[in-house]
Write a protein that binds this DNA or RNA. Structure first.
Length: 480
RNA sequence: GCCCCGAUGGUGUAGUGGCCUAUCAUGCAGCCCUGUCGAGGCUGCGACCCGGGUUCAAAUCCCGGUCGGGGCGCCA
């Protein structure tokens, strides 16, 4: 059994470079990590009172800010007794500012033969102030040893977020985006933003949320697809966007939301293989950076998992290149695993289980039938399956059974684009908003869209996408 | 859109027709304690989702509603 004290010792994030603010001279993390050089110095810190243990004329407060935990020790003899009483009778999670001297903490009693813990520091308080009193009881316990249902947690996400493992997940999310950006910028991609209010579908397939744009009917964008392509057509060469996408599908699963953040790239003079390379290098960079820099966040998540009797997670940097399992081969794997499927069928979740048994990690599924891909996906006329079906340059990236990415080389020849539409019984006249961008010369290009939360589910071992999205929007949830 | 499941104090739970003025944990409130550290001790507080029905008797069975969960389809 691992107790709270284990992770109370560590800092939650590196705040060594943070400047003092009007409310504190130091972060708690700074005192925890630099305590030896601060002993005897007067500091002010501010934080949430995680626990307040009164013992009559002395009082212990476990203070937490966004950078760590520290114990504040209050003695009635050492301060204004009225302030002492006020703080001692305050409620858990109230915000408190205290001023006092840094001191080495008296070591806890340890059992015979147990190693002495490394030195810790505390603040001997001389004055303090309640900044904001917390109401009781808390709707969700921050450190209580009681499981809380996801729905209650999401209703009270601002409190749920105070729990260390939840906090760690969202810090990891920020890291994932940071490392992803780092890598793409290194490969020459530039960040762009596309409009989220659009006049018509930018990529067929899913339902859009309708809205009114003043007096004009409009929709929320389901993908930056078209706009990334227009940017590449315009000569920006390599672009990426991290932004929201909206899909009005009434799905209700552990991996779907109606608003999600999509990590998208598009590059000129590239085909599907080229952008798969970008993707696997980016994921490799993210994983190896987390492995090198952020093990403490993984540890915090694992402390919680252990306390709940769940399996812990390890950051296993995937080997390059990721396996490529062409669609036709995937069909054979499913068939030999006993799945009922024919060439031309979609590979469904239960089929993916069969493939994942052989390829449990990241793997690409390239060369899907053209008939299953949108009209804007590129195909070579001479690339056909054994059964004669036209293959495309569209691909997916899966991790285990879950789809992370959909991407491909795009069709850049406007006449082929229009023929693709006719082949799918669509009228090119209805798609001029898309095809018109291709009439004045277009580079061959390719790209993909990656679900950020799905990637984070893999990294953190979260079983539900709602865990790793701050304020998820699903079929029934629009608040908070 | 389809299929399955669930709802008990603030939170997480026990409970399968009478043993329930409902279990346990956590929490909350109060008291004791001048070095606790998963603090401890004592005393309290607090719940059967809503509406209808069956029955001598319903947290428990039936119907409807509301809310939630899981799976499928579709997708990222």
């Amino acid at each position: 059994m691992i107790h709270n004290q284990v992770f109370l010792r560590q800092t939650m994030r590196d705040s060594s470079q943070w400047e003092p603010t009007s409310y504190r001279t130091h972060t708690i993390g700074q005192i925890v990590s630099e305590g030896a050089s601060l002993v005897g110095e007067e500091v002010s810190v501010a934080g949430y009172a995680e626990t307040i243990r009164g013992r009559g004329a002395i009082c212990f407060i476990m203070l937490r800010d966004g950078t760590g935990h520290i114990q504040a020790f209050l003695k009635k003899d050492n301060m204004n007794p009225e302030i002492f009483d006020l703080i001692q009778s305050s409620t858990r999670e109230s915000t408190v500012q205290v001023t006092g001297l840094v001191a080495q903490k008296r070591p806890p009693k340890v059992a015979e033969g147990e190693p002495m813990p490394s030195p810790e520091y505390e603040i001997n308080v001389t004055s303090g102030e309640i900044l904001a009193e917390a109401a009781t009881p808390l709707p969700v316990g921050i450190i209580d040893d009681v499981k809380i249902g996801l729905d209650i947690r999401l209703d009270n996400r601002h409190l749920d977020l105070r729990r260390s493992h939840v906090n760690a997940m969202f810090q990891l999310r920020s890291k994932v985006l940071q490392y992803g950006r780092e890598h793409l910028i290194k490969e020459g991609f530039m960040e762009m933003n596309s409009p989220k209010i659009i006049a018509s579908a930018s990529e067929g397939g899913t339902n859009l949320f309708p809205m009114m744009y003043f007096d004009t009917p409009a929709f929320l964008s389901q993908s930056p697809q078209l706009y990334k392509q227009l940017a590449v057509l315009g000569g920006l060469e390599r672009v990426f966007e991290i932004g929201p996408a909206f899909r009005a599908e009434k799905h209700d699963t552990y991996r779907h939301l109606n608003e999600f953040i999509s990590f998208d790239i598009e590059g000129a003079w590239m085909n599907d293989e080229d952008v798969m390379g970008v993707q696997e290098r980016m994921i490799h960079h993210i994983w190896s950076s987390v492995y090198e820099n952020d093990q403490s966040l993984i540890d915090v998540i694992n402390e919680y998992k252990v306390s709940q009797g769940e399996n812990t997670i390890t950051v296993e940097v995937p080997e390059l290149p990721f396996p490529r399992i062409p669609y036709s081969e995937a069909i054979e794997i499913v068939k030999s695993g006993g799945g009922e499927i024919e060439w031309g069928d979609d590979i469904e979740s239960h089929h993916c289980d069969l493939i994942a048994a052989k390829y449990p990690g990241f793997h690409f599924l390239p060369r899907w039938p053209m008939s299953m891909k949108p009209f804007y996906i590129y195909h070579n006329k001479n690339e056909k399956s054994d059964s004669g079906g036209q293959l495309s340059r569209g691909f997916d990236l899966n991790y285990g059974r879950d789809e992370m990415t959909s991407g491909g080389q795009r069709e850049h020849r406007v006449d082929v684009l229009e023929q693709n539409l006719r082949d799918m019984d669509l009228n090119p006249e209805d798609f001029t908003f898309y095809t018109d961008g291709f009439r004045y010369g277009a580079p061959p290009h390719a790209g993909w869209g990656l679900g950020v939360a799905r990637l984070l589910m893999v990294l953190t071992g979260a079983g539900n996408v709602r865990e790793v999205v701050l304020f998820p929007r699903d079929r029934t949830r629009v608040t908070p």
